[in-house]
């Protein structure tokens, strides 16, 4: 008989729920980027509404984790798994909120001046962030510290691209008229993407803590 078989099952279920939460956030982010790319302003509303489901799942995960602490009195690696599940789910929920912020910002760009090639740059930054999201979820599922450590360099790339992007779009404000609103919203969207990438790095740090028991600053 496996001792604590039931508890092991509960730990596995907890992780599956977080992966599900992560996938929901990833999909929302994906849909937002596709919408931006294809100028589908109408696609933003369902994404905004869907955030409620993400929030509810995060609360479910919190509830489940709290009950496990109360009933199973975990220690050491078991306790870390549960604590990290709370941290990761909270970070994912924030990523969901930022995705909603992106969708709202994009909605505000409807009927405004289009900024063709800048949008392409924005999509490039978003793809990098998307790759981070994917990688960090896989690393979390596998408890893979090496993969988690790689997230940091991906974040550096996003930060660099974000910095360049903001500089270049604000140069346009100086020379062109009527683009201020679009430029501002684009700056916001890029900022949200950059924050999402930061949250991915946070999660990567939690993965390292879960496995090694040590906090590690990847920023």
């Amino acid at each position: 008989m496996v001792i604590r078989g039931q508890f092991e099952t509960e730990l596995t279920q907890l992780k599956s729920e977080i992966i599900m939460l992560g996938t929901m956030v990833e999909n929302a982010f994906d849909e937002t980027i596709k919408g931006i790319k294809n100028k589908q302003y109408g696609k933003m509303e369902p994404i905004i509404l869907n955030d409620e489901k993400i929030n509810r799942l995060e609360l479910d995960i919190n509830e489940r984790a709290t009950l496990m602490i109360a009933k199973q009195q975990p220690v050491a690696s078991d306790l870390r798994k549960i604590i990290v599940s709370l941290k990761v789910s909270s970070d994912l929920e924030r990523m969901g909120d930022l995705t909603v912020d992106m969708a709202k910002a994009f909605k505000r760009m409807v009927d405004k001046e289009e900024l063709g090639h800048f949008e392409k740059e924005l999509i490039t930054i978003a793809s990098k962030a998307k790759a981070m999201m994917k990688a960090v979820l896989v690393a979390y599922q596998e408890g893979n510290v090496l993969e988690a450590q790689k997230i940091a360099s991906m974040d550096d790339e996003v930060d660099r691209a974000y910095g360049q992007f903001v500089q270049s779009i604000f140069k346009v404000v100086a020379v062109e008229t009527g683009v201020t609103e679009s430029i501002t919203q684009m700056a916001f969207i890029s900022r949200y993407i950059e924050r999402i990438a930061d949250y991915c790095t946070n999660i990567a740090e939690w993965i390292i803590y879960e496995v090694n028991g040590k906090r590690f600053d990847l920023n």
């Binding site: 001792i3 604590r4 508890f7 975990p74 220690v75 050491a76 690696s77 078991d78 306790l79 870390r80 028991g213 040590k214």
Partner: peptide, 18 residues
């Protein structure tokens, strides 16, 4: 001992694996 034990056997014991 109860957060980051060094030995796998300690970890297994305190987490109730044996």
């Amino acid at each position: 001992i109860f957060s980051t034990p060094n030995d796998k056997r300690t970890e297994d014991y305190i987490t109730g694996r044996f």
